[in-house]
Amino acid sequence: MTSSEPQRGEIWWVQFSPTIGDEMQKNRPAIVISADDLTRLKLRLVIPITGWKPTFASVPWLIQLEPSTHNGLTKVSTANPLQTRSIALERFNVQLGMLEA
């Protein structure tokens, strides 16, 4: 799955490094949440995704995501809105899929 520029609801591999402190690092999936008409700046607002751990069930802001062919995830994961970031288009690598309704 590929698109010219990331769109709202899509899941992409994103290069988050370099980072500082407790920011999520490395290459990982992320959900694009910025509006599609955000074209003036070459930035997108994203929520990083990481692997699910049972201890996350008690953290109210973490959102569990089940893998599917539609979203492109290969394991149970979690979206972490606390780590929402605005990132440059150059950090986007490959589109994995799309969020389901």
Rank of each mutant, 00 (worst) to 15 (best):
D36G: 13
Q15F: 00
T84W: 00
S77M: 10
L73S: 07
D22R: 13
A57C: 09
D37F: 09
E66Q: 14
E100G: 08
D22L: 13
W13R: 11
I31V: 15
V59D: 15
G51M: 10
N71W: 01
L38H: 13
D37M: 06
L62T: 10
N71G: 02
S58Y: 04
R40D: 09
L73C: 07
L41A: 12
D36N: 15
S4K: 12
K75F: 05
S4E: 15
F16E: 05
S3R: 14
G97V: 06
S3H: 12
Q15V: 07
I33F: 01
T50C: 08
I31G: 06
R28K: 09
I20H: 04
I11K: 01
A30E: 03
E90K: 10
K42L: 03
L73Y: 00
K26I: 08
T69K: 11
Q95V: 12
L89P: 08
G97L: 04
V76H: 08
A57G: 03
M24Y: 00
A88L: 04
S86W: 01
D22T: 11
N27Y: 02
S34L: 03
D22E: 13
R91G: 06
Q64A: 09
Q25W: 02
I33Y: 01
R91H: 06
L82C: 05
P60V: 02
A30R: 06
L65C: 08
P67S: 02
G51P: 13
T74C: 08
